[in-house]
Amino acid sequence: MGQTGLDQALWAFGRGSGITALIMLTVAVITGIGSRSGRTLLLPRLGLAELHRGAALIATALIAVHVVSLLADPYSQLRLLDTLVPFAGDYRPLWVGLGTVAVDLLAAIVVSALLRHRIGPNAFRVIHWAAYVFWPVALIHALGAGTDSGRLWMLAVAAACTLGVVAAMAWRISRDFAEFGLARERSLR
């Protein structure tokens, strides 16, 4: 029995939304790092913060579309259990399981963002640091579970995303990076 047009559309939509989510996650990580700096980069700090929030929201929506479309697609063989319990699936259990771990981390990040004012800034910040684990897990999931992972264009997307995040993280840990609060204190002196 071959795939129907709807099955092919669901499969393509699942793949495309996952790849686009990875790109938007990369934008969210890079702008999140940039918004913590006291410096004006391409945008003022508050503009970067808004771009970070927007990219994170779009990425979250795309991940939801990714999961739902693959659940509806009979070819992907994704079960609801696979989206809740890591490494329980039959299809590429390690790689799909990493996707489940990434979704679990994303859920913690989203819930902490929604409850930010109730849990306080310190708890929010600690949970939000899960993004530094979430992003590489999502990238590894894309490269292992994705049917396009060996294609040159997908490798180029993954390489560009990796380069962007590695550069932002290298800047984040360098002496040139100043947290917003520290930069503000220095400017008041």
Rank of each mutant, 00 (worst) to 15 (best):
V101R: 03
L81P: 06
V103P: 09
T100V: 05
P74N: 03
W95M: 13
L81T: 15
Y91H: 15
D90A: 15
A108D: 09
P74V: 07
F87K: 05
L105T: 02
R79H: 05
V111K: 03
S69Q: 10
V96C: 06
V103L: 15
D104V: 13
D90C: 07
R92C: 08
F87T: 05
S76M: 12
V101Q: 05
L80Q: 13
G89C: 02
T100R: 00
S69P: 05
R79K: 03
A108R: 13
L78T: 14
R92E: 08
D73K: 08
V85T: 10
R79Q: 11
P86Y: 12
I109Y: 06
Q77V: 01
A102C: 09
Y75S: 09
L70Q: 02
I109G: 01
Y75H: 15
S69I: 04
D90T: 15
I109L: 07
A113Y: 03
R79D: 03
P74Q: 07
L78Q: 13
P93F: 08
S69N: 02
S69T: 15
G89D: 00
L114W: 14
L81Q: 14
V101H: 03
A102V: 09
L84G: 11
L115Q: 05
A88Y: 12
L71Q: 02
D104G: 15
P86A: 10
L80W: 13
V85D: 07
A88T: 14
L115R: 04
L106M: 14
A113L: 09
L84R: 10
V96Y: 08
A72I: 02
S112D: 01
L105H: 07
G99K: 06
L115A: 13
L115S: 04
L98F: 09
V85A: 10
L78W: 14
R79C: 01
V111C: 04
F87C: 06
L114I: 05
P74L: 07
D73M: 09
L84P: 12
I109H: 11
F87N: 03
A88I: 12
P93T: 04
L98E: 04
P74H: 02
P74D: 00
T100C: 00
D104P: 08
L94D: 06
L115H: 02
V110S: 11
V85Q: 10
Y75A: 12
V85E: 05
T83Y: 00
Y75N: 09
D82G: 02
L105E: 09
D90V: 12
L106H: 06
G99F: 04
V101G: 01
P93K: 09
Y75C: 08
V96R: 12
V103D: 11
L80I: 12
F87G: 03
S76H: 08
L80S: 12
Y91T: 14
